[in-house]
Nucleic acid binder design. Structure first.
Length: 795
RNA sequence: GCCGAGGUGGCGAAACCGGCAGACGCGCAGGUCUCAAAAACCUGUGGGGGAAACCCCAUGAGAGUUCGAUUCUCUCCCUCGGCACCA
């Protein structure tokens, strides 16, 4: 029979709630802000949530018992398109749908025993929250960091809305995988590119982030240093700047390529059709460094959005140019001689992109290409042929969405005054309760007459309210600040509270947010710092990205039909067993394969801990093995300290493992302690060992730990009990068993007093019959001693 | 192609700073209890040889450094994740 988890789990959840046990109250070891990426309220929690939040909860409980003042909040990222789609499908409205989902998820999170300070709950679709989205937007507008621009934008024909660059994955919508179209639209952007350099540089401060996240952000920001070179069109003299990172190859340019959308094509060509894969324009460009006229081509391998939309082609030293030149019979001129192989390009099968020696490069001949790169760039700048410059891959962030369930963008379009911001004291611009939702395109808000009609804040005339809403990534870019003072009414957050709690000491979430959410949050933090509301550069000191939960080697998903519902597992095994399993099955960053048999094993472990503790509590029943009488130990002498030692070794190990997030080995240490107690049930130290086990178990299986703690006769809550400390003196070994190796192979063992010197050991080891046998009469050449561990006899 | 992470029993995984490879758990095998089964409990469990003592092999493959390598260096193979006409 299992221990009664179905009774004790709700009992302790209610007790913790009653005692407000998880409020962010003072502690004497400083603050600790622990945050998980808050969930999108989709209906039910899934195993990914369980894993994410269990990892965090163990840390929260551990830090609390160490005396930290822990801020561990939870909220809901409640705006967004899925709620709108679900509302259409279920003939309800997004607000009601979302509120229902939140209730459901909140109760599931409570059933897991997660220790949140629910008084700080933040729900982004509440006007109390999104008014501050609008406020932040207006500050950005004032600073020119929010702007409207017409451009070709990514458009998802299925979702009927625009997408940010970050939301396009392999040229398809990140949400529904529909191929993305380009559409010319006037939209709202945030100027994240104003912070390019800082977003890149400050990655260096994030030494506690996983390196792959850093790399992904670096690649996404994509800084390249190069030279913008002033080519001109032959005849008209019109400017045609190109961007290159390889100024050392300028003398090898044999043609110029412009993007098919390049505006210059209108000037130099009359024919309207532009062959995408590549065609000559007939026009020529002048290379400023040598006055040479080279043909201008157009091809779609040159992108209008990057650099200047035009390149100088150096087929000898760029593989794409090389292939293009081969195909169109364009000349190849070598200007970097490789260390091996000659400069005859007709022999080449591919471009040489490495370093070498400058040739065919006028006064720069003979220089190494690395030197040539610097000298030629400097020379071009001096001669005004071009200027050194930096280009970024990162684009500004498109935030307009043509959807209903989001934060209204707080501006008004006036015929006379243009775009006019809604005054701050009129915020929030409230989302109307009802709007005609069809999912068929166009902003639903545009069809709500009462919403659209607004008087211009400047001239008072009837104007049209902006009907696009904000991308929900806006909402999640600063929610961690709102948690610091969730009821603040004058500003998005109280700067004093933020100064105390920020930065987030530990952030935990999925790797899928490595770019979007984390980059946007870093941007917002820097902006709010520049606004004087924050005094820090980076919001998240330490980041843990947990691995995915798989079943049958695949991510759990409805379409694959391999979803394991957390609630079902709780009913069958209890929340404590689920928590323990998910921590034990794999290290937190690794993928985790769901295994029903393994959770049976965890359940077995918990039952045995229960029996051990019960049999040692006053009047408790006997253990199921029937031979334990821990409650009334025989009047034994304390000559055997092995169980005490085991208990204190467990304290040390679990503490260290928790510090370094090694939950799986921490749990195996708990299992070892349990095994040790079972082996010496009559030891006079059994009671202390059991209590230690219960205390160490508390962060992992908090309900069982509280219940057993109470049954062991304690009155106070275990959550407010300090974390145990180990007695170092107990762990000092008086005797050690040394491994004896001969030539690096284990041949024997010897038990000796700890800390014995080499000479004494040598005599002992050489006298060992097994060593004698392997020496076979030969003298020992050397003796390597690793203190209290190993002796290696070298023959 | 570039960048990042990784490859250890039948499975999930351990192994501090270069020092007993496989802790802990699952599974499996044998046993106890039972009319029987399940549950629970006990014992064993990397591969090979041997009656046993004990010996040999083994951390993707191959080399190197070292008294000693899962750990450090080099080459190669494979898996997973991210980015990708970025000039």
């Amino acid at each position: 029979m299992s221990y009664p988890f179905a009774e004790i789990e709700p009992k302790w959840q209610a007790r913790w709630d009653e005692k407000k046990a998880f409020r962010a109250d003072p502690g004497d070891r400083g603050k600790y802000y622990l945050l998980e990426m808050f969930p999108y309220p989709s209906g039910r929690i899934h195993m990914g949530h369980v894993r994410n939040y269990t990892i965090a909860d163990v840390l929260a409980r551990f830090r609390r018992s160490q005396g930290h003042r822990v801020l561990h909040p939870m909220g809901f990222d409640a705006f967004g398109q899925p709620a709108e789609n679900a509302a259409i499908k279920n003939k309800t409205d997004p607000s009601a749908w979302t509120q229902g989902c939140i209730r459901q998820m909140r109760s599931e999170l409570e059933r897991m025993g997660f220790s949140y300070d629910w008084e700080r709950e933040v729900v982004t679709c509440e006007p109390d929250y999104y008014r501050w989205n609008q406020w932040i937007f207006l500050q950005m507008l004032k600073k020119g960091l929010a702007y409207r621009a017409g451009a070709k934008v990514n458009w998802c024909p299925n979702c009927q809305t625009t997408l940010a660059n970050e939301e396009v994955v392999e040229e398809a919508c990140w949400r529904c995988a529909t191929p993305v179209e380009l559409k010319e639209l006037t939209q709202w952007y945030l100027k994240i590119t104003a912070y390019c350099q800082e977003l890149l540089d400050d990655l260096k401060q994030l030494s506690r982030w996983p390196s792959r996240v850093i790399t992904m952000q670096e690649n996404w920001i994509g800084r390249s240093e190069g030279v913008e070179i002033g080519f001109t069109v032959k005849g008209s003299g019109q400017r045609l700047p190109v961007f290159t990172t390889r100024p050392d190859t300028i003398f090898g340019a044999t043609y110029v390529v412009v993007a098919p959308e390049h505006p210059i094509l209108k000037e130099i060509r009359t024919a309207a059709d532009v062959k995408k894969e590549g065609m000559a324009t007939g026009a020529q460009a002048i290379n400023p460094v040598n006055g040479e006229a080279i043909p201008i081509w157009t091809a779609d391998y040159v992108l209008m959005e990057y650099g200047t939309g035009a390149i100088m082609a150096v087929p000898a030293h760029d593989q794409r140019d090389f292939l293009f030149a081969r195909e169109h019979n364009l000349p190849v001129r070598v200007v970097i001689r490789p260390p091996k192989g000659g400069p005859d390009p007709s022999q080449w099968t591919e471009a040489y992109e490495g370093e070498g020696t400058q040739v065919n490069s006028a006064q720069f001949n003979g220089l190494s290409s690395a030197e040539g790169k610097k000298k030629i760039a400097a020379w071009m700048e001096e001669k005004k042929f071009g200027k050194r410059t930096v280009r970024w891959r990162l684009r500004d962030w498109l935030i307009s969405r043509q959807r209903y369930w989001g934060t209204p963008i707080p501006v008004v379009h006036c015929q006379a005054c243009g775009v006019v911001p809604v005054p701050e004291d009129e915020l929030p611009v409230t989302l109307p309760a009802k709007a005609p939702l069809t999912g068929e395109g166009g902003s639903p808000l545009a069809k709500v007459k009462a919403f659209v009609g607004a008087s211009c804040p400047r001239c008072g005339k009837l104007s049209r309210r902006e009907t696009d809403t904000m991308a929900t990534f806006f909402d999640s870019s600063w929610y961690f600040l709102r948690f610091c003072s969730p009821k603040e009414a004058k500003l998005p957050f109280d700067p004093k509270e933020a100064a105390y709690w920020m930065p987030v000491d530990q952030y935990i979430g999925g790797i899928e947010h490595a770019i979007l959410h984390l980059l946007y949050s870093r941007f917002f933090t820097k902006f709010l710092r520049d606004e004087g509301l924050l005094a820090l550069d980076e919001p998240f000191t330490r980041l843990l990205t947990q691995g995915m939960v798989l079943k049958g080697g695949e991510v759990m998903s409805k379409s694959k039909g391999n979803v394991v519902d957390p609630d079902g597992v709780i009913q069958r095994y209890g929340a404590d067993a689920l928590r323990l399993f998910i921590l034990f099955a794999a290290p937190p960053e690794d993928q985790l394969e769901w295994n029903t048999q393994a959770i049976e094993g965890i359940s077995r472990f918990l039952n045995r801990v229960w029996d051990l503790a019960e049999s040692s509590s006053p009047g408790g029943p006997k253990d199921r093995r029937g031979d334990l009488e821990i409650a009334s130990p025989p009047a034994g002498t304390r000559n055997d300290i092995s169980l005490r030692r085991a208990a204190h070794a467990a304290i040390k190990r679990v503490t260290e493992d928790l510090e370094s997030f090694k939950f799986n080995t921490a749990i195996s240490a708990l299992m070892e302690l349990k095994n040790a107690i079972e082996k010496s049930p009559r030891s006079p130290d059994a009671r202390e060992a059991v209590e230690t086990l219960v205390r160490l178990l508390a962060p992992f299986a908090p309900h069982m730990a509280e219940e057993l703690w109470e049954r062991l006769g304690h009155k106070e809550l275990l959550v407010s009990n300090p974390w145990p400390a180990h007695e170092a003196s107990l762990l000092v070994e008086k005797e050690v068993t040394l491994v004896i190796q001969v030539n690096g192979k284990v041949r024997s063992r010897v038990t000796v007093p700890a800390g014995q010197d080499k000479e004494t050991l040598k005599a002992k080891v050489l006298a060992d019959p097994a060593v004698q046998k392997w020496l076979d009469g030969k003298p020992a050449r050397d003796l390597i001693v690793v203190p209290d561990r190993l002796v290696n006899v070298v023959v």
